[in-house]
Nucleic acid binder design. Structure first.
Lengths: 125, 125
DNA sequence: GTTTTTGTTCTAGGATTACTATAACAAAGG
DNA sequence: CCTTTGTTATAGTAATCCTAGAACAAAAAC
């Protein structure tokens, strides 16, 4: 799985990393049981500090996407709390859809985009 | 329109303010042509600094949700660039949906949530 | 047994951002 | 004339982000 960090972005590096790993899981580029690179190796590959990678991994652990084992490192393992996931998603969606709605994006167009995104993922499986 | 700031949140105050105003527009609590409170008055009401409100207004202007007039202050006026809005929304949706998908939220459930949110807004009009 | 690699922890410094605080300005309106 | 408007400048505090170097115990590799 290829990770691309935009150093010009105003989004923190550890957040870009977190989001890309989550999208990697969603697209099945990363599967349950897969191990992520060690913090030192990934930091070296990307050209950032070890602690920045460690922070991304810690956030992923806290959010229930990986478990961290001293021997094997970070392992993709999903702690599914669907009720919580739905509540959190609704909150995020409200902000995203409000912005879109102000710009005259219709409910149908949103549905279309959702389908597009899900289709992209299913193709890659 | 009621604005609620969570001072314990890790989200910046000016971003909370920006998002609530955008949601206010989406729900028609704020309509095109309406004037927002002056930066000093709103800052006083909320109990924050004038410059924090000013920053929120500046972001809203840059994103095309309000125009700012020296006489009347910030006025809701939507600069609709739908192509850009769709592109930006898709990028945001990708992250939100990836998180949900990992937690076994289905495409159908996302559609349901989208409808729920749009319905909330339409009821208030 | 020795060496390497693993995550973890500590301290520390630099850079940037967020927020607050004053103060002052020109423009418009009452 | 006085008030209110957004705007700008300066300044300080606090928090966050990122980097850096060092060290530790535990597990794996040799």
């Amino acid at each position: 799985m290829i990770i691309e960090i935009d150093f010009q972005s105003d989004e923190a590096i550890y957040m870009q990393l977190r989001n890309q790993i989550i999208m990697g899981i969603a697209t099945s580029a990363l599967q349950e049981g897969d191990t992520l690179p060690s913090v030192r190796q990934l930091a070296d590959d990307i050209g950032i500090n070890m602690h920045t990678v460690n922070k991304a991994y810690s956030v992923l652990r806290q959010e229930g996407f990986v478990t961290i084992d001293r021997r094997r490192g970070a392992i993709v393992s999903l702690d599914v709390d669907k009720t919580r996931a739905l509540a959190e998603m609704k909150q995020s969606l409200r902000v995203v859809l409000a912005r879109a709605s102000c710009k005259n994006v219709t409910r149908q167009e949103v549905h279309g985009l959702v389908d597009e995104i899900f289709s992209e993922w299913e193709q890659e499986e």
